[in-house]
Amino acid sequence: MPLSAVKEKLAGAALASKTKAEQASTDLGPSPRLEWLPLERLSVDRRYQREMGKDNWAHVHRILREWNWLHYQPIVVAPKEGGEGYVVVDGQHRLEAAKKHPLIDRLPCYVVDAVDVAQQARAFVALNARRIGVTRLQRFWAAYAAGEPTAKRIHRICSEAGVTITKSGGVLPPKTTFATFTIEKLLKVGGTHVTTALKILARTHGDKPDVFKSAWIYALTQLVATKDIGCARVSHTMTGLDLDQVAAAARSARAKEGGTMEKAVLAELRRRCEAALRRAA
């Protein structure tokens, strides 16, 4: 097939996909309503709802400790089939937390007319399967906007090193990172060490895309904090270093020995720093 025909076919497929995505449903189903319902009228149908294990109860207790109406989302309920009251379609953790809270005796509920257990189960699956989770990066930016000290500290550390924290994923531009969770874990090593590590990476490989990732930030911070190697040796070792070669060696070692990529990169960089020290001795 000629290239022009291929391009025309792909363009047509893209247009058809876009048109399909923009189509709206014609059957909206019965309209829901919002009601404040007493806790004693709310229950959970275990025929399709998940069982409450240790982790579930830990989540319930976390909600209980942090309960604030400003952060509350109404639970989704449906009239109980063949009886009084309502069953929870989505939100059983919030319900269990509310039952334990001494100041709460009713909840604002989003009531849908799923008339039998089959419809309720389908609604449960749809609500959970189509939910887009909040990423760690999105949580970071929300925390930063809220003025949380840890998020502000991470932002300051990156800014001091001339590194930008992105708001989206994908290929990272030069001197850009999304490794806020890794940096947060490294704060116990020392914020100054993290800043120094970022500055070394910016000086030696700041012109390259997709570099400021967790493995490099973790490994460099740990090495900078190690007294037997020192910042100067780390910086000298990183200068002109082929990062792809280091990453390949780390992946090979990880395949044999297990562990995380962060620790594999750390081990490979440490090996190179120590070899440079021996040559200099």
Rank of each mutant, 00 (worst) to 15 (best):
L95N: 07
A143S: 10
K54R: 07
L64C: 07
S168Y: 08
L42P: 15
A255P: 06
K99Q: 15
R33T: 06
P79G: 11
A247T: 03
A197G: 13
R46A: 14
G29H: 14
E81F: 11
L172Q: 14
A97Q: 09
S31E: 12
I157Y: 07
A14K: 14
R131G: 12
G82I: 08
W57A: 00
Q222E: 11
A161I: 03
A143L: 05
K18R: 11
A197C: 01
R62A: 11
V117K: 04
A126L: 12
A16M: 12
I157K: 03
S25F: 11
K18I: 15
D244G: 15
V115P: 07
V111W: 03
A215S: 15
Y218M: 03
S25Q: 10
D27R: 04
A13E: 10
G53W: 09
T226P: 00
W36Q: 14
G191Q: 04
G53K: 08
S235Q: 10
V163Y: 05
A78T: 14
G230R: 02
K20V: 13
L187Y: 02
P74M: 07
S252K: 02
W216E: 02
R136S: 12
L269F: 00
T19A: 13
Y144R: 11
K80R: 15
M261S: 12
W216F: 15
S43C: 14
V171A: 09
Q49W: 11
F124T: 10
Y72Q: 02
A280Y: 01
A123Q: 08
G85K: 01
H71P: 01
I217M: 08
P173L: 13
A247D: 03
R65M: 07
L172Y: 13
T176M: 08
A255E: 03
L137V: 09
L220E: 03
R106P: 08
A114R: 04
R270M: 01
A202V: 14
K7L: 15
K9P: 01
S159R: 11
D244H: 09
A78W: 12
M261E: 13
D90R: 04
R122E: 15
A146Y: 04
A151H: 13
V189Y: 07
T195W: 05
Q138A: 14
L95M: 06
A11F: 09
E184I: 00
L34I: 15
L64S: 00
K54M: 00
V171D: 03
L10R: 03
Q138R: 13
F124S: 09
F212T: 05
D27F: 09
K100T: 06
T204V: 06
A118L: 06
Q119K: 12
A280L: 02
A225Y: 09
A78I: 13
V76G: 10
H205G: 01
G147L: 02
K18Y: 11
A255M: 12
A249K: 02
G190S: 04
D27A: 07
P74G: 01
W69L: 10
A5D: 03
W67L: 12
H155A: 15
C158V: 06
A146F: 08
V224S: 05
G230A: 05
R47Q: 13
G259S: 10
G83I: 05
L42D: 02
L241I: 14
G85A: 01
P79W: 09
A16R: 10
Q92K: 14
T19N: 08
